[in-house]
Simulated assay, not measured.
Amino acid sequence: MKRQIIAALAVLSFAGPALASPEIDADTKAKVEQKLTAEGYEVRRVDSEDGMIEVYALKDGARLELYLDSDLNIVKTKGED
């Protein structure tokens, strides 16, 4: 049983980097920040998730998660529950 657990942990340790989201390059981050700032958002963080650009931002006192496509269009918004 102990060997199975160790083997499973070893497999997961190698799978982690493959499951990580790709980094957003500095140029894209700058474009996202510029666009959203012009729209009244205060950008806190820009990441990548599920092939989309994920942005954590504030607007009118609300914390938001924004999901943008490759053309920097907001396609989904999640608010604080």
Rank of each mutant, 00 (worst) to 15 (best):
V32R: 12
A8V: 02
R44Y: 00
G40T: 03
Y56E: 15
L66D: 07
D27K: 12
L12P: 01
E23I: 05
L72C: 05
L19K: 06
V43I: 14
V32M: 06
A26D: 12
K29G: 06
A10V: 11
I6S: 02
A62S: 11
K59P: 07
R45V: 08
A8C: 03
K35L: 05
D81E: 05
V11N: 01
E80G: 09
V75G: 11
A57F: 00
Q34E: 14
L9I: 03
Q34S: 13
V43A: 10
V46Q: 03
S21P: 06
K31L: 04
V46L: 02
I6P: 00
E80V: 11
K35F: 00
R3W: 12
K76D: 12
S70T: 11
P17H: 06
Y56S: 15
V11D: 01
L19D: 02
V55Q: 10
E39R: 11
S13D: 00
E42V: 15
Q34P: 10
E65W: 01
A7V: 09
K29Y: 00
S70P: 01
S70G: 02
E42R: 13
E49V: 10
G61Y: 00
V75K: 09
M1H: 14
K29F: 00
I6H: 01
I53M: 08
A7F: 14
L72Y: 01
I24M: 03
A15S: 09
F14A: 11
D47Y: 04
K35Y: 00
M1I: 01
A26I: 12
K76M: 13
G40P: 10
A20Y: 04
